[in-house]
């Protein structure tokens, strides 16, 4: 009963052909990604430069990091649309903790506190959904507005412009010539894949999303699994805030507005069923990269000023097309509507 939307677990969604869907989706996304890079590079070779591809990865890193957590939440059949506001709140808190004009705490303490608040927010979401029995889309919709309001209060119309060097280094520094955010993103992806694929917990995530009632009968504590997923997502949002926000010199109150839509889009285009049970990390990562590359590609193709006004339209059309094509391919293969869990 605790689905995001819709009525019951889709009537037919178990093993068999369904297991192929995420892999097929990842393959398709990888193909499109290579195609986009190839075509744009043919028009403007600068696109294929190592520097640009590196920037592309850096730009997508926050979506990838948070997307991993979101994938796990969506796998359990829930959703969290408060991540954008949470990112904004964590950025503001990090700024307040670190700025010498405010609290001026040491870097390690700032990191610890930020991670703790992020995890705490995830816990609150998880509790509202499980114990409070508030549908996740409603609980996190409420959190979306509440956290944004709280952020405005904390910032009080000011920006934080004096992040200490120790914190700035999290965003601008790196190791072996690779920025921290990429190391972190790689680690997060690795750990998430292991959790999802190789641990009993991962099995439970899929089981809870696939059929909560059956999972309940199999004595899996569905509440605990879902609380864990929300907490992990909160933690990862804090991680994203720590590596992405210090890339900029200014912490402002509008950070993360609309971020939840980007992340949910990446998860959905990545092939994770919105009703849970099927999907995976790989698809989300590829979709995040693809969505990031499309925006950049439009700059490099340089269609002229008028085309700028069509960019959002092109992106939206692209998402629609990707979902539609995948769906039609799935239908032809006789596993109709599997990944999106079409209504009954």
């Amino acid at each position: 009963m605790k689905r995001v939307l819709g009525q019951r677990p889709a009537a037919v969604r178990d093993g068999g052909a369904g297991a192929r869907a995420p892999a097929r989706r990842s393959l398709m996304l990888a193909g499109i990604l290579i195609l986009v890079i190839g075509v744009v590079s043919a028009v403007n070779p600068a696109f294929a430069s190592l520097r640009n591809l590196g920037d592309l990865l850096v730009q997508s890193a926050p979506v990838i990091i948070v997307g991993c957590g979101m994938t796990l939440v969506v796998l359990t059949g829930e959703i969290d649309i408060s991540v954008g506001s949470l990112l904004g709140l964590l950025a503001a808190l990090m700024g307040v903790f670190a700025s010498p004009q405010h609290w001026g705490l040491p870097t390690a303490v700032v990191i610890g506190l930020t991670l703790a608040v992020g995890t705490g927010a995830g816990l609150l979401n998880g509790l509202l959904v499980t114990v409070g029995r508030v549908p996740s889309i409603i609980a996190t919709l409420a959190m979306l507005t509440i956290l944004r309001g709280v952020t405005e209060f904390i910032m009080g119309g000011r920006w934080i412009t004096d992040l200490p060097p120790g914190i700035r280094a999290l965003g601008t520094g790196g190791a072996l010539g690779v920025p921290w955010c990429l190391w972190v993103a790689a680690a997060v992806v690795g750990v998430s894949v292991v959790i999802a694929r190789r641990t009993p917990l991962g099995l439970r995530l899929y089981a809870v999303g696939g059929n909560a009632e059956a999972a309940g009968l199999a004595r899996i504590s569905t509440a605990r699994v879902r609380i864990f997923a929300f907490m992990l997502l909160g933690l990862l949002t804090a991680v994203a805030a720590l590596v992405a926000v210090p890339q900029q010199s200014v912490v402002e109150s509008g950070i993360g507005v609309g971020f939840e839509l980007v992340v949910v889009t990446a998860v959905v285009v990545g092939g994770t069923a919105i009703r849970g049970g099927t999907g995976g990390i790989a698809g989300t990562v590829l979709a995040a990269l693809l969505l990031g590359s499309i925006r950049t590609a439009l700059v490099f193709l340089n269609f002229g000023e008028t085309a700028t006004y069509w960019e959002r339209g092109i992106q939206g059309g692209f998402i629609l097309a990707a979902v539609l094509v995948d769906h039609l391919v799935a239908a032809r293969q006789g596993s109709g509507g599997r990944f999106i869990g079409a209504a009954a």
């Binding site: 959905v268 339209g313 992106q315 629609l320 079409a342």
Partner: peptide, 25 residues
């Protein structure tokens, strides 16, 4: 086509806004 409405309208949320921006510049 029977795609989940959340996904359909998430895509058209961007697409329709983009279309409006495009035709009106």
């Amino acid at each position: 086509v029977r795609i989940h409405p959340l996904i359909v309208t998430l895509a058209t949320l961007a697409a329709y806004r983009g279309l409006a921006e495009g035709i009106s510049l």
